[in-house]
Design a protein around this nucleic acid. Sequence first.
DNA 1: ATAATAAAAGTCAATATTAGTCAAAGATAA
DNA 2: TTATCTTTGACTAATATTGACTTTTATTAT
Lengths: 155, 155
Amino acid sequence: MQSQNISDIIEKYLKSILADSEHVEIRRSEIAELFNVVPSQINYVIKTRFTIQNGYLVESKRGGGGYIRIEKVNLVDDADVLDTLIQVIGDSITQRDAYAVVQSLYEDEVLSHREAQLILVATDHNTLGVTDRDVESSLRARIIIGILNHLRYES
Amino acid sequence: MQSQNISDIIEKYLKSILADSEHVEIRRSEIAELFNVVPSQINYVIKTRFTIQNGYLVESKRGGGGYIRIEKVNLVDDADVLDTLIQVIGDSITQRDAYAVVQSLYEDEVLSHREAQLILVATDHNTLGVTDRDVESSLRARIIIGILNHLRYES
DNA sequence: ATAATAAAAGTCAATATTAGTCAAAGATAA
DNA sequence: TTATCTTTGACTAATATTGACTTTTATTAT
């Protein structure tokens, strides 16, 4: 029932590999062929689901023997994770990216499950209930950055 | 005999599925077609009959492979306390009163110390950064109510 | 070495496929 | 009668899919 679209299925496939190994290295055309999609759809999947907000680093090379390599990074290992995240967020963040950020913090055990849920509820589109998209996004950024700053201060 | 408008019938249909499984996942257009109504009527049914107050969580996704998913959740023991708080807050709350609410939830062990702090940061005057006091207070009310509603059930 | 060719991946915009919003019109109940 | 609830549909927004074109890198031929 769940995951009716191919992008979700490709995402799961890549993440299932990442569950075992530190990184996954693919040939774009092979994966595209495996799932019967055009090659550029692989870029779409990566761009929407393997961002730094999601805790992934991506590197690639073109030409003969080219590849795309996806690596799961642990934000906590980095001393100034929170600073990095704050920079990435800037003064505006979509609900989707906010979800990715909070999810990453949960995976890195910076936040408990409940804390993560509370933050997502607090920054949810329906919760905020403002009509203007830009206002909503900047408000969401302020709340998340406020919390991140608090977390830094705390530790 | 109760009137059986289409919205009621669709409601019963969805709830009959939820009687067996934990959740139901639909394609909006399919259900609309099944009952011969316009798609947006499904939104109406959900909005009026599957609210969080009634113990339902709804999530959805647009685009290819999109869906609407309804989940029945278990209410916690203090749900009625939370309901009362939600009523009292209404559509506006000052930072001072918000502090009192959060403080009492902490004392009642509904919230951990860290969770309480997160909520206070999220609803802080400086965090929200809106100039208009009324806007600030109603925003704070929305955030806290959103969180209280989340606390009503166990995920 | 250099130039031409091949073999990758990247970009971007058009199109397709969903769901969401909102307000007007219609129906029903108090 | 009047207020509330239901139904409808036009418009909006989000997400996914596709393909033409570009860029980068490696390999081969001269």
